[in-house]
Structure formats: structure tokens, C-alpha cells
Design a protein around this nucleic acid. Structure first.
Lengths: 228, 228
DNA sequence: TAGATTGTTAATCGATTAACAATC
DNA sequence: TAGATTGTTAATCGATTAACAATC
């Protein structure tokens, strides 16, 4: 929610993490202030859009001066809720689940993987760089007792919905779904989806699109040469 | 490119893999035809949008009847370029790179991981379920000789651009970027990005947004109770 | 103060939805 | 043929960009 409680469009939210990334880079370089115009040439959004986006949440800039890099960084971090710590569990300790468990990048940003869960007896009890794989049977109690905020779904398509239901029932506030299917969650649970296959298919489309255009261009050039 | 060579908006492209997923499910269930209205209640897009989207590429339906499930599935698969095989390499054989190498899901869909590359001597020579980790030094020759179509970037932020440059130079047609940074590629190379951190940050926002709304509602209810 | 740059309103653009004629 | 449903045009909605007054 922004100022005046107005609903912020998802397009804006999706841009916030990117703003934040560029602000981190600027901070590293020791840049202290930036105008929307300078930021625009860096990040690739129009200056107008940057000002419009930020003003959804409040007037963070100063007329005639610009935005404080550190100030804006802190504001956006707070808007995203990155000034808090989050406790997560992974459900499905296959390849993807294991990779996410081991990926320390999230931990550094305040997202802690507390445990992984699976039904496979060969996996239960194993340790993934300090993260234990537990029996899926016990997930509800674990989520309740350990006050887990986020459930990460890394199971296959057919089990994703049942896992989502169980996680929601157990009381997670958010679900991060990597299963290649669409799931439904109660309105009080936030849902974010990463469809890797869909992303790959979209890449395939664009590759073929470029190819087609190149073929069309070649043909065009050939015809021009014939005319000469 | 759709009919009349008109540029298709990216919003449409991003919906195609989802249409395709639902068509696969319908095929599995033995459903042979579907109207845009029925499809709408299933997939959650408006019937109007479905017809509009599909008509970007051609008239796949039949008035008074609807769409052939199998026919539409084949058309969308072809539009996405999924009737072809793709050869891929992974650059960066850390946790994420290894997970993608082992993730058989893509292989089933015609996207074959041919090799992984790293600079770490401890990793070079290792085998990931049949996929060898090779020396990054030799990536250009490998991509050329093995006719690699897609490069998957799983290195850290600081090396992502240099890897993208090398892959583009070597002749890949598409790059799938998992590094938590923005990279630039030549116009003849397609780019698809998966920003896991950004996705997680967006989830955090929505979780906090829901929380705030609940607090506001509780407060509202409290005030009403006081008045009674 | 003058210059710069924001915050905000207005204009434009693009994407989604509605309507309906075409047609199976 | 009558009914159903597409393909397509027109209307609406929302998001982006432009313009400019407010103000540091």
C-alpha cells in the first residue's frame, strides 16, 4: 500500500527490486545523490516513470537536488519489507530444492532457509550445507513451532497444490512456487511464481522470431541484388 | 512474428506457454475441443483475450464449434518453436548451475544441456548426471563445434556480462540469465532473464501488503466495537 | 535569486474487454 | 436452418510519457 492507501499496480512493484539493485551499485561507487534524469540513463526507465513510481510511496526527493542514494535505498528496502528477517522452508528436496537450500545469496538478504522437507526416506535426515531434510509428515508442526513465513514449493506438478494447501493451513504468509503448474492460495497468503519452463519457452519464441526476421531480411537483400 | 508480420506484444508471448500447459492437461483428460468461454473459466483469462491472443497468429478456431485442443496445442507449440530441439550449455557450475544441469524436465521438452563450464579446477572434469563440467577457457570452440543454441548464465553478478559477451561472440542464439544483474546482448541474440532475488523481494512486498491490510481491518473493527 | 529538479496533473499510448457481424 | 462461437472492430481501461507549476 502506498500513500493514501491507494493500490499500487504490480508493474510498479516488479520494478522496485531493480531500482534497489542499481542503488546498491551506486552506493558501492560512493555516489551520494542522483537525479531522476541520471538514474534514467543508468537503469533504462524514463525519468518520468522513475518519479511517478517513487511518488506512489511518498516524496523521497528534493526539488532542485534529486534523490539521496542512501535514503532512497533505505526507503525502497523498507517498502519491500527487506528490513525484516524471513524464515523459509523448502518443500521437495530434489535438484531444484537442494540448489535453493545451498544458494547462500538469499540468506545474505535476510531470507533464511530453516529446513527442507521431502517424503523420500532416502533423503530424510540428510544435511544440505547445514540445512536438514525433514519428513514432510511433520511439516505443519514445524511451520507452526518455528514460525515459518515462507514456503518454497519445489515438488513436481501433481503435488504442488496439496503442498500449497498444507503450507497455507500451517500458517505461512507467502508461497514461492517453482512447480511447473498454477496453484491457488487463500487471499491471506501471498503467492509468487517462478515458471522456469515458461521462461525457457518464451526464450525459444524470441530466438525464432529473430531468426525469421533475419531470413526475411536476407530475402529482401537478395531481391534488391537481382534488380540491380 | 504473427500474421501480416505485425509485432506481437510481449504480454501475449508470455501467455502462450500457459495456454500450452492447459492444453496439455486437456489432452491428457481426452478433451477434444474447447470454446474460448470454457477455456476462459479454466485458465482465468477472459474469452475475449483468448480469442484476441490467438488471432495474432491466425484463425485457429472454427465458428460455432470452438478450438481443437490438439490442433491448438500443435499451433502454439510451433509458434513457440517447441517443435525443434535446442542445445544448451550452462556457464557456472555452482549450486544453481548444477541443479539446472540435473533438472531433467527441460530435456523432456527438447532442451538438451550438452555441457557445463566453470573456471574452478576442482569442478572441471566432474560429471553431473552425465553432463560434464568443462574448462571455461574452451567455451568458444565448444559452442561453435557443438552448435550450441542457448547459453545459461549461472555465474555471479560480476562475471555475468563477460560471459554474455563470450557466449554471444561464440554464436549462441539465446541467453538465459540467472545472474542477479542486468546484462546487455547484441540484437541478434535473444535474452530471457530469471531474477530469483527480485522475485523473492516482490513476494516479501506482497506479504507485508497483506499484513498491513489485515492490521488496518482489525483496527477498523476495533473502532466499530468501541462505538457499539 | 536563478537554476535545477521534483511532485503532480494532463495527454498519449497500448493492452484488455465488450460488442457484434461473419460463418460454421 | 437455427444456434453457437469465432474473428475482428470499437470502447474502455490502465500504464507510461510529457508538461509544467511548485519549491528547494
Amino acid at each position: 500500500m502506498g500513500k493514501n492507501n491507494a493500490k499500487i499496480s504490480n508493474a510498479v512493484i516488479k520494478r522496485l527490486p531493480r531500482y534497489r539493485r542499481y542503488l546498491i551499485e551506486l552506493k558501492k561507487k560512493g555516489v551520494e545523490k542522483i537525479s531522476s534524469k541520471e538514474f534514467s540513463s543508468l537503469i533504462g526507465y524514463t525519468a518520468s516513470q522513475i518519479r511517478q513510481d517513487l511518488n506512489n510511496f511518498g516524496g523521497f526527493g528534493q526539488q532542485g537536488y534529486g534523490y539521496s542514494v542512501d535514503g532512497l535505498y533505505k526507503e525502497i528496502s523498507a517498502i519491500l519489507g527487506l528490513d525484516k528477517e524471513y524464515r523459509m522452508v523448502i518443500v521437495g528436496a530434489g535438484n531444484l530444492g537442494q540448489a535453493i537450500a545451498k544458494y547462500t545469496h538469499f540468506h545474505k538478504q535476510g531470507f533464511k532457509v530453516c529446513a527442507a522437507f521431502d517424503i523420500n526416506p532416502n533423503l530424510i535426515g540428510k544435511d544440505l550445507d547445514g540445512i536438514e531434510i525433514l519428513d514432510y509428515e511433520n511439516i505443519v508442526e514445524y511451520v507452526e513451532e518455528e514460525e515459518i513465513d515462507i514456503g518454497i514449493i519445489c515438488v513436481n506438478r501433481d503435488n504442488a497444490q496439496e503442498v500449497a494447501d498444507k503450507l497455507s493451513f500451517a500458517g505461512v504468509k507467502g508461497i514461492w512456487n517453482f512447480a511447473p503448474t498454477d496453484i491457488e492460495v487463500p487471499t491471506h497468503v501471498a503467492l509468487e511464481v517462478v515458471h522456469l519452463s515458461d521462461s525457457l519457452h518464451s526464450l525459444a519464441y524470441h530466438m525464432n522470431d529473430i531468426q525469421k526476421k533475419e531470413v526475411a531480411q536476407d530475402k529482401h537483400r537478395e531481391e534488391e541484388n537481382l534488380r540491380d
